[in-house]
Structure formats: structure tokens, C-alpha cells
Design a protein around this nucleic acid. Structure first.
Length: 375
RNA sequence: AACGCGAUGAUAUC
């Protein structure tokens, strides 16, 4: 069940087995801690970790790596570091997996010094590096603008007889796209194919997105067709990216046709798809279409998040439906979707435009008291 | 005893 991503069933079974005095072992605990961390229930995961001992289970390196991953995903770097030290202190030797998690986790929050220190420690301990480590380092260093060092890691990889893999190329192509360098992204793409690497949907999506972002949606579309011609099936992210940039370029009909094509190709639209289309139609002043999409996503069993609500509220605002915008803001809270800072920004705008400055000030206070930072 | 558990890449809003 954990492997299938059915964390809820996994957790129920775990509780059922404890109720019947069937005691979980380390592996079972590890699986459940892993899925709790993945679902964001870090507190429960920690409680599990602490109750392991009473069940006579001794946490092992896998237990620690799951928890470290849980902390780092939430950006709790300090707690992760403390846990890592505790693990070493009780004599559990960190393996390559643990270092991957640490280097990736610290790196993605810009703590490159820490990432480098972990890499160093790995080397000192004779723990072999793998491509996951280098891919993480390359990604984080590029993101922080330290491209020269990222390039050094790329070459260091080969020295360790680690060939770059499809992950490495997708990081490089995606980074070029983020920097507004679609032609460079394409050069890397060509080089990887010339060297016998088979680009997958992630690579194509990164490439298509690079051209879309650079204001060349039709070039992106052309690559999308090439992708299909080469037998690589576009996935939901590929469609989402292309729909987004066609829409942003004002080609709303084409964007909607792609949405319809998804159904023909058994590609299930997700929240990204709907929010992208809702935004496109809202900005094209087609409030009916955007509201229809909002209803459709719900009937399809998707649960709107703060992102989707924000687009919906903004569209209503643009259409002059200030009352409805306020109603939706309240609706989201009754369905336990916590508004984020962006939503508060939007709603403050709505209330000011509605002439209700007092309510806007109250919302501002609600926002700051809720621990959200005004931006 | 064996088996089972952990890591890196793409897409949406102000």
C-alpha cells in the first residue's frame, strides 16, 4: 500500500495490527514513518519513531533517513541536523542514501556550504558518491547562480565513473529554460540524444517549457509534435505547460483543444491543468468558461487548493463579482482550505474595491495574526 | 536466515 501511494490504507492496517497485538517490526515502522512523512504528518511520524523502542524495535539507518527526508522537505534544516548528529552519536553510520537526502535537502534551501560539508564527510568516510548526489548538487548550485561550480560537479561525475543520466540532462535543460535560454536548452537536448540518451517526458516537458517561457509557444508546440512522432507520450505536465503558454499568447482555442486532446489520449487533467485553464479564461474575460472549469474539477473528484481558489477569486473580481468573490473566500475556509498570503492579498484588493476598507484592515490583521507575512 | 522499507529532474495564481 505504501508503494502504491495508498498511505491511508497502510496507516489503517498498521493501527489494526497493533490493536490485535501483532507487533510491527523495524521494516513495518519504517514503511509507516515514510508514508507519514510523505503525507506531511511529521508530528505523528516522530511519535511513531519514539514509540518504536517500547515495541522493542531499534531504529535503523532507513528510519533515520525517512525522518531526515521528512524534516528537510519542510525546510526544517535545524531539526534535521540535530537528528543526523543524534544518529551518528548512537553509532549508526550514515550511508549514501542519508547523504543524498542531506545534500539534496540543504542544497534546495540554498545551504550550499552545508551540502559541500556533507559531500566532504562522505569522501572522508569512503562512502561512494552516486549520480543522485551529483544531480542534486548540480541543481542546487545552478539555482543559486553558482554555475561554474555546477559545471565542475558535472565533470567530477565522469571522473568518478558516473555517467550523467536523464535526470542530469533534465536539470540542465530546465535550468536553461528558467534562465530564459531556450536555444541553449535545445543544444543540450541535441547533445544528449546524439550521445544515445533517450529523452523522456520530463526532458521534453522541460524543453517545451523553455520555449514557451521564452515567448515561442509555436516552437514549443512543434517540439511537442516531434515528441509524439518520436514515440514519447506527453504526460499531464507536458500538456499543462503547452496549454499555459498557448493561453498566455492569446491562443485560447488551441489551448482548449489540447485540453480535449488529453481525454482522447487517456491523460488525466490535474489541478495544474484546471488552474492553468481557469487563469487563461479569466484573463481572456471569459468568466463563464472559468467557472465551468472550476465546477468540472470538483465533479471530477479533484479538491481545489489555495492556488485554484485564488485564481477563481481573482477571476470573479475581474468580472466585477465582488460578492461572489467573498463567498468563495468563505467557502474555501468551510472546506478547510487554509488561505495563504496570496489569497489574502487578493481579498484585500477585493474588499478595497468594494469600498469596505474596514473589512480589508480586519483581513490584514487576521492574516498577520495567523502567522502569514504580508509581502 | 532470507525477503519486505529510505534519495535526485518538468507544468499553474498575486
Amino acid at each position: 500500500h505504501v508503494k502504491l501511494g495508498d498511505n491511508f490504507t497502510a496507516y489503517s492496517l498498521f493501527k489494526a495490527m497493533k490493536k490485535r497485538d501483532c507487533f510491527p517490526d523495524v521494516v513495518t515502522y519504517n514503511a509507516i514513518i515514510h508514508c507519514l512523512c510523505k503525507e506531511g504528518f511529521l508530528g505523528t511520524a516522530i511519535k511513531m519513531f519514539e514509540s518504536m523502542e517500547t515495541d522493542g524495535c531499534i531504529p535503523n539507518v532507513v528510519t533515520y533517513s525517512s525522518l531526515l527526508h521528512g524534516f528537510l522537505k519542510l525546510g526544517r534544516l535545524r531539526s534535521a541536523y540535530t537528528l543526523f548528529q543524534r544518529m551518528e552519536k548512537i553509532g549508526i553510520k550514515p550511508d549514501a542514501h542519508v547523504y543524498c537526502i542531506l545534500i539534496d535537502g540543504f542544497g534546495r534551501f540554498g545551504k550550499l556550504g552545508h551540502a559541500l560539508r556533507f559531500l566532504d564527510q562522505m569522501k572522508r568516510e569512503g562512502c561512494p558518491r552516486n549520480s543522485v548526489i551529483y544531480n542534486s548538487l548540480i541543481g542546487s548550485f545552478i539555482k543559486m547562480g553558482r554555475v561554474q561550480e555546477a559545471a565542475r560537479f558535472f565533470y567530477e561525475m565522469s571522473h568518478n565513473e558516473l555517467a550523467p543520466d536523464v535526470f542530469t540532462f533534465s536539470i540542465l535543460i530546465g535550468s536553461c529554460g528558467n534562465c530564459g535560454l531556450p536555444n541553449e536548452a535545445y543544444q543540450i537536448f541535441r547533445r544528449m540524444t546524439e550521445n544515445g540518451y533517450k529523452p523522456d517526458a520530463y526532458v521534453y516537458t522541460a524543453l517545451i517549457n523553455s520555449f514557451g517561457k521564452a515567448g515561442q509557444p509555436n516552437r514549443a508546440w512543434q517540439l511537442f509534435e516531434e515528441m509524439k512522432a518520436h514515440g514519447c507520450a506527453p504526460n499531464v505536465a507536458t500538456y499543462n505547460s503547452l496549454i499555459n503558454y498557448l493561453g498566455k499568447a492569446g491562443q485560447t482555442d488551441e489551448a482548449y483543444k489540447l485540453f480535449e486532446e488529453m481525454a482522447e489520449r487517456n491523460c488525466t487533467p490535474d489541478l495544474f491543468t484546471f488552474s492553468t485553464l481557469m487563469d487563461i479564461f479569466g484573463k481572456a474575460r471569459n468568466i463563464r468558461a472559468s467557472c465551468a472549469l472550476f465546477n468540472q474539477l470538483k465533479t471530477r473528484g479533484l479538491v481545489p487548493n489555495a492556488f485554484v481558489y485564488n485564481i477563481h477569486i481573482q477571476n470573479l473580481w475581474r468580472a466585477g463579482e465582488l460578492k461572489m468573490a467573498c463567498d468563495v473566500f468563505h467557502e474555501m475556509q468551510t472546506v478547510r482550505c487554509a488561505p495563504d498570503a496570496v489569497i489574502f492579498n487578493t481579498m484585500i484588493g477585493v474588499l478595497v474595491e468594494a469600498g469596505d476598507t474596514n473589512a480589508a484592515i480586519l483581513l490584514y490583521e487576521e492574516m498577520t495574526e495567523g502567522g502569514l507575512r504580508p509581502n
